[in-house]
Amino acid sequence: MTKRIVERFAALKAENRAGLVIFITAGDPDPAVSLEILKGLPKAGADLIEVGMPFTDPMADGPAIQAASQRALKAGMTLKKTLDLVRAFRESDKTTPLVLMGYYNPVYIYGVDRFLEDALKAGVDGLIMVDMPAEEDEELCLPALRKGIAFIRLATPTTNDERLPKVLSNTSGFVYYVSILGITGTASADTKHIEQAVTRLKRATPLPIAVGFGINTPEQAAAVARVADAAVVGTAVVKIIADHPKHPTETVAKTLAFIGDLAKGVRTARAGA
């Protein structure tokens, strides 16, 4: 439900700081470890969570997140199990907003109505669908909004002023600004560009602006946190999971420690500015 997202951004605003959004792929490296990481995220400092729905052909993702999808699928992950994962997470956390991110085909095959029903019940607050532009809103976006699930839109450097109103229509929760031309985990935008983009988006929407793609270090996260409402980190997190394949406890510990560092960067960004 959208409410958790709205409340979280209101709380962040009250604290005068930006949020940290962490992306992990559901079931990576396997369902059990993935749940451990997910459960640890809020305490480690994640303000919002994006859970990637594994897909064989993730067209907007770089090698790291492609590999995460492959690991998860190999470990038997399905969309149904992704929803199970969310449900298990919600047993211990009722306040951290969680959005599902991914590609449309698994949702389409699951069945849109049944998916929205089950996602809401599992405790999903919003959706980020990479291959669902505003032109296809009838299909998933509008049904999701009617259910009270936020539909978070991606805005990109190619989204010109003429198009921006269309992108910002039928959206809720927050706007995700893709700060580079490209796929996940390949390049980083400079802060000046991000600042200008956020200013442009802010003029067009009252929604909070999260910025992602290419944020790899606590320093970069802090820089984004100075100008945006939230910083999204995915690839760098997923890489840590990939680097510790043999020891589940170590995988969880290293991942959460890194998120702690990112959170520190984000939380102190404006104080240090």
Partner: peptide, 14 residues
């Protein structure tokens, strides 16, 4: 058919 692509590409295909 349709246009199921990332937003980055939408302005281009339009």
């Amino acid at each position: 058919g349709g246009r199921y692509v990332a937003e980055t590409l939408m302005p281009l295909i339009l």
